[in-house]
Simulated scan of single mutants.
Amino acid sequence: MSVQWSGLSYRYAGGSGLLSFPDFRMAAGQHLLLRGPSGSGKSTLLALMAGLLTPTEGRIDMAGSDLGSLNARQRDAWRGAQLGFVPQRLHLSASLNVLDNLALPFISAGLPPRPERAQALLQHLGLADLGQRLPHQLSVGQAQRVALARALMRQPALLLADEPSASLDDRHARQVLDLLLDTAAEQGITLILATHDSRLAQPLQGRADWRVLDLSDSAAAEAAV
């Protein structure tokens, strides 16, 4: 999926500062790693790419769709068809068990659930025995991996992940990265990861299919992997 934006900025309601992002273009077949500390704009940029926020200024195009020009219903349809999203706040439904949470992306789209895919993803993420647990019965790391599995359920063309290794130990952080890379290769998914975790950045160094955008300062300069 091609991704590009120009003149892009966003101001939160009541906020005094304007977050501005350097013009950027990424070809189909590439992936993007957003780096920078908390408060540098990573989550805001992901929300703009997901169509959850409307730019204050500028234009953002995802696979040729100008998200700022779409109305709310059109954006919802675009997200349902194209996007998997793992936010920092995981938003698992507290009243549903893990397997039912994984069925939600299909049910909300009026499609039949795919329990076999849910079980395969849970197996890959080391959660095979937790399908009947409620979210409050999961550790923070387990809930993080369930949220990732849910984002992958409908085999999206684009996956946005905001700090996907947060609260994970080294072994599970690597498992999550391996799952993301393997799934992207198998299904042609474009990955956009936002993280300050060097455990994710280091394995991607030297890979020609990855771009890195460093938001460490207000200038937000692109860096080499």
Rank of each mutant, 00 (worst) to 15 (best):
V3T: 09
W5N: 11
W5F: 13
S6Y: 05
S9W: 08
G15V: 06
G17E: 14
L18K: 07
R25L: 05
A28H: 13
G29T: 06
H31K: 06
L33G: 03
L33W: 00
L34Q: 12
L34E: 01
R35F: 04
G36D: 08
P37K: 15
S40D: 07
S43N: 06
L46A: 08
A47R: 08
A47P: 02
L48P: 00
G51D: 03
L52P: 01
P55I: 15
T56F: 02
G58Y: 08
I60V: 11
A63V: 05
A63S: 09
A63W: 08
G64N: 07
G64T: 09
G64Y: 12
S65Q: 09
S69K: 12
S69G: 11
N71S: 12
R75V: 09
D76V: 15
A77M: 14
A77C: 12
A77Y: 11
R79A: 15
R79G: 02
G80E: 15
A81D: 05
G84E: 06
F85E: 00
Q88P: 01
R89K: 10
R89I: 04
L90I: 08
H91M: 07
S93P: 07
A94G: 14
L96W: 10
L102F: 06
L104Q: 14
P105D: 14
P105G: 15
I107C: 09
G110D: 11
R114T: 05
P115C: 13
P115R: 11
E116P: 04
R117A: 08
R117C: 01
R117L: 10
R117V: 02
Q119M: 12
A120Q: 05
A120P: 02
A120V: 06
L122V: 02
Q123K: 12
H124F: 06
H124P: 05
L125E: 02
L130D: 04
L130P: 03
Q132A: 13
R133N: 04
L134W: 01
H136R: 10
Q137E: 04
V140Y: 01
Q142T: 06
A143L: 00
A143R: 00
L148K: 03
A151M: 10
L152Y: 01
M153I: 11
R154Q: 05
Q155E: 03
P156G: 14
A157L: 09
L160S: 04
L160G: 14
D162M: 05
E163Q: 14
S167D: 15
S167H: 13
S167T: 13
L168E: 00
D169L: 12
D170P: 09
H172R: 09
A173C: 02
R174M: 03
R174D: 02
V176D: 00
D178N: 09
L179W: 01
L180K: 11
L181V: 12
D182P: 06
D182L: 05
A184R: 03
A185L: 08
E186G: 12
Q187N: 11
T190V: 08
L193Q: 07
D197E: 13
R199I: 14
A201I: 14
Q202E: 15
G206V: 02
W210Y: 14
V212T: 07
D214C: 12
S216W: 11
S216N: 09
A221N: 09
A221S: 13
